[in-house]
């Protein structure tokens, strides 16, 4: 119990939860303010999960580095539990907010996007470290957002984040990314950043 508590403290779970709460509050307030405008709800369905996912991505950084790797016990289980908990809380809170929106199945789209973008953030955290892991989902969302920019009627398959919630392949994309990201972080951890920019 104490081990779990200390692990969560080391991962700044308190500030992470505060940020997730903030993201949920902004989502709720924004959706209420725009009065179910479908254009803006579409923006919210992509952007607020992006914020939640990147916050969770940043929290996978370890402050202890190699010392934790050599002396830590049950690290994969602890990492998995920590991230799964944050995902459940972040995704669940957004799903509650998204119920009853004019955007069809807005709650499901929010959950899918949190999951997939968090997976992307975890994979990026493995490569560039937790602190800068937000850059991958941010870049991906920009690409997906403008994937139909040239007037194409159909979005490319990889732009799952902007697909409607009912689009089944997009759920698989998100689930696969999440699984890959969770596995990478659970077993290998986020990259330590001994470089100059950290």
């Amino acid at each position: 119990m104490r081990l779990g508590y200390l692990f969560l403290r080391s991962r700044m779970t308190g500030p992470s939860l505060a940020c997730l709460l903030g993201v949920t509050a902004v989502t709720w307030q924004w959706a209420w303010w725009v009065k179910q405008d479908p254009g803006i709800l579409f923006l919210i369905v992509v952007m607020t999960p992006l914020a939640a996912a990147t916050v969770i991505g940043v929290s996978c950084r370890s402050p202890f580095g190699e010392a934790e790797r050599t002396a830590g016990r049950w690290l994969p289980a602890l990492r998995l539990g920590h991230l799964a908990g944050l995902l459940l809380l972040g995704g669940g809170a957004l799903a509650v907010v998204g119920r009853g929106w004019a955007e069809p199945d807005g709650d499901l789209a929010l959950v899918r996007n949190v999951a997939g973008l968090a997976g992307l953030a975890f994979l990026a955290a493995r490569v560039v470290g937790g602190g800068l892991s937000w850059i991958a989902p941010l870049g991906y969302v920009v690409l997906a957002f403008f994937a139909g920019g040239a007037g194409e009627n159909e979005l490319p398959r990889w732009a799952w984040v902007v697909q409607p919630a009912a689009h089944e392949p997009s759920r698989y994309w998100a689930a696969e990314l999440l699984a890959a990201g969770l596995l990478a972080i659970a077993f290998a951890g986020a990259r330590e950043s001994p470089d100059a920019v950290e």
């Binding site: 500030p15 992470s16 914020a51 990147t54 940043v58 937000w134």
Partner: peptide, 13 residues
């Protein structure tokens, strides 16, 4: 550390 993604995503939003 949490300020960083929040700032970037708020700017993008």
């Amino acid at each position: 550390r949490f300020t960083v993604p929040v700032v970037a995503i708020a700017a993008m939003m």
